[in-house]
């Protein structure tokens, strides 16, 4: 199709102009690929590895959606987006699904006409400082030079935090995490601030991570979640429930290892419904009955994805914290699957 667009853009485009379809699901199925927006590179969340394959926490969510919808977890086209391009890319239809550490805020949900389908990571903004600086609280940062990634909510939180505490600072805006890291390491700023998870991920890549500390203050709520365009509720439902299925799977003890075994012999009706052996949940969202099974098999349940990409065993080394299941005192709470 692309060739036709290139060569006869006008003629073909003229024909297509009438069909302003809102059915993302049909588009994705026709294309055979899910266009998924991710960051340009943040270790643990989404970054290409040495072979150029994308991997990470957000990437896994994309793959789960692709597996549920298309039956192939590799049928994903990853589109690297910056803070600037991510919303246009989604609004203009260049991507179907944006999983890029995006904070769920009122205006993004309403004014920008997007739908957040849930939260895949509960985060908050923190500060990283060199140990040598001898700072133990963010409130001691009066007059400090602060590196921030522009175009993120962190920029606004930072301004609010310093204003609230009536202390001054000097912002050094950077475009990407890599740049922020360079500036910070070169001493061009005293502290680097971004989501605490991002700070941990960044610190993990340092030569001597031990020389840097994260300050105890978490100055904001950052519910990070994937989002889709507003108005296509079918597509929104599918993606929302793929995410919920991953979370529910952990709660129910379904892992990518035991899923086959569980499919046949479980007497827990909720598991049976989720894995499609009972009921017709798949039909209700326009998919077949094995959608959730495929999604979970793609990269594992939520817990597995977390452990594999950003958990304590990885260089990123994040504890589950708020992101534990509600049964373990966390905030993850998937609505009942029925």
């Amino acid at each position: 199709m692309k060739k036709t667009v290139i060569f006869g853009a006008l003629t073909v485009a003229g024909l297509a102009a009438g069909a302003a379809g809102a059915a993302t699901l049909d588009d994705v199925k026709a294309r055979g690929k899910l266009n998924c927006g991710v960051t340009t590179g943040l270790a643990g969340f989404a970054a290409p590895n040495a072979n150029g394959e994308w991997e990470g926490f957000d990437v896994a969510v994309c793959r789960a959606v692709a597996a549920a919808v298309l039956g192939d977890k590799n049928a994903v086209e990853f589109v690297p987006t910056t803070g600037k391009t991510r919303f246009t890319a989604l609004a203009s239809g260049e991507i179907d699904f944006l999983a890029r550490n995006t904070t769920w805020t009122f205006s993004r949900d309403t004014d920008l006409k997007f739908d957040f389908i849930g939260v895949n990571y509960y985060d908050g903004q923190g500060f990283m400082v060199p140990k040598a600086l001898g700072v133990s609280s963010a409130k001691d940062l009066d007059g400090a030079t602060v590196c921030i990634q522009t175009g993120t909510t962190t920029e606004l939180n930072l301004a609010d935090f310093f204003r609230k505490n009536n202390i001054s600072y000097e912002p050094v805006p950077v475009e990407t995490n890599a740049e922020g890291q360079q500036q910070y390491l070169a001493g061009a700023c005293d502290t680097y601030t971004t989501d605490a998870s991002g700070l941990a991920a960044t610190r993990a890549t340092f030569e001597t991570p031990g020389d840097h500390v994260l300050l105890p203050e978490i100055i904001s709520k950052e519910p990070l979640g994937p989002l889709v365009r507003h108005g296509d509720n079918e597509w929104g439902d599918i993606t929302r429930w793929v995410l919920n299925a991953l979370i529910a799977a952990e709660e129910l003890g379904i892992t990518s290892a035991n899923i086959e075994e569980m499919t046949g012999n479980t007497n827990n009706p909720e598991i049976a419904r989720l894995l499609g052996t009972e009921g017709t949940l798949g039909e209700m969202i326009g998919l077949d009955n094995e959608w959730a099974k495929r999604a979970i098999m793609a990269e594992g349940n939520y817990g597995e994805i977390f452990a594999k990409n950003i958990g304590e065993e990885t260089p990123i080394g994040l504890a589950r914290g708020l992101n534990a299941q509600w049964t373990d005192g966390g905030l993850l709470y998937a609505p009942p699957v029925r």
Binding site: K2, I6, A13, G14, G21, T88, S92, G93, E94
Partner: peptide, 19 residues
């Protein structure tokens, strides 16, 4: 090209960034 042009193409034509 990056943030505006996509709005000027017919919906769903998906002209990629390179073009």
């Amino acid at each position: 090209a990056n943030v505006m042009l996509a709005y000027f193409f017919p919906p769903g034509s998906g002209v990629d960034l390179f073009i």
